[in-house]
Amino acid sequence: MTTHYLVLSALLFAIGGVGVLVRRNAIVVFMCVELMLNACNLAFVTFARQNGNLDGQLIAFFVMIVAAAEVVIGLAIIVTIFRTRRSASVDDASLLKY
């Protein structure tokens, strides 16, 4: 009965993953990461329901907090990069290599 939730979670995760891999816009990549995190959250909550305890829900809250912190730092970095390079494309920020 929880299978549907899990399939949805997997789909969302896959969509997010493909988004991270194929999109160049940093904001979109970032949103895809968020999508993957939320897919995970969905899975956690589903399993919490299935197992009848609160562990999964607890973890979901943790993930949300981490995601929030990540948004703060990530957006700040993206904005800084945009300011210096006039571009939000992740491929343009490829100086850190070799």
């Binding site: 891999l21 160049r24 990549v29 992740v90 100086l95 290599k97 070799y98």
Partner: peptide, 17 residues
């Protein structure tokens, strides 16, 4: 081996996946 470090975030993501 260091040539693998292309600097493209998306290729890193791919290797993680």
């Amino acid at each position: 081996l260091r040539r693998v470090q292309t600097g493209f975030v998306r290729s890193y993501a791919l290797s993680i996946f």
